Computed example of a mutant assay.
Amino acid sequence: MTASTPLRTTLIGVALSATVLVPLQGTAFAAQAATTGAAITGTASSVAGIEDETARALARSLADEAWKRQLGAAASGGDAVDLRALTEGTRTAAGQSLASPVAEADRAVATAKGLPAGVGSLLRVSLVTPAAKAGTEDAAPLVAAAPSDDDGTGFTAYDSRGNAHTLDTDEALDRPVYLVDIDGAKAVSAGLKVVGEALAAKGLDVPAPASEVNASAAKATSSPLAATAGIDTTLIDSVRIADVKEPGIKGDAEIFTLVTGFGKDGKPRVDTVEMPYLNKAATTYYPNQVLVNWSNYKYNMADAVMMEDDGDTNYQALAKSIVTVLLTITDQGVYIPLADALLDAVPTSWWTDDPDYVDSWYTLAKTTQGTRNGAAGNGWMNVSPYFVSEL
Rank of each mutant, 00 (worst) to 15 (best):
N378I: 01
V325P: 01
A131M: 11
A345R: 09
K68C: 11
P147A: 10
D359M: 01
Y277P: 15
L342Q: 03
L225S: 02
P141I: 00
T352P: 06
A218V: 02
T90K: 12
T257P: 06
D170Q: 15
G114E: 13
T328H: 14
E171A: 14
L167M: 02
G251A: 01
T313E: 11
T234N: 08
G261W: 03
L192N: 14
Q25L: 05
D174K: 13
G162I: 00
S321N: 01
D232L: 07
V81Q: 12
L167R: 11
I40F: 05
A44Q: 13
V358G: 08
G203T: 07
Y286W: 13
E246K: 10
M1F: 11
V125G: 05
A132P: 05
D79R: 05
V239S: 00
D243S: 11
S126P: 09
V239R: 01
L173V: 00
G251H: 08
P276Y: 09
A112G: 03
G261N: 05
T27H: 06
P116E: 08
A30K: 13
Y178K: 06
G120I: 07
M307G: 10
V206F: 09
D331I: 01
S4T: 02
A341F: 10
P147D: 11
A226N: 13
P385Y: 09
G184Y: 08
I255F: 03
D331M: 07
A198W: 07
I231K: 06
L338K: 15
Y386P: 10
N293R: 01
A140G: 14
S97L: 04
T111I: 03
V206P: 05
E390P: 12
P23L: 15
A75D: 12
L391D: 14
F262Y: 12
P276D: 09
E308P: 01
K202F: 11
D344L: 07
S211P: 03
V47L: 15
P268M: 08
Q316C: 00
Y335M: 07
L58N: 01
K298L: 06
V290A: 10
N296K: 08
D237A: 14
D149V: 13
A302T: 09
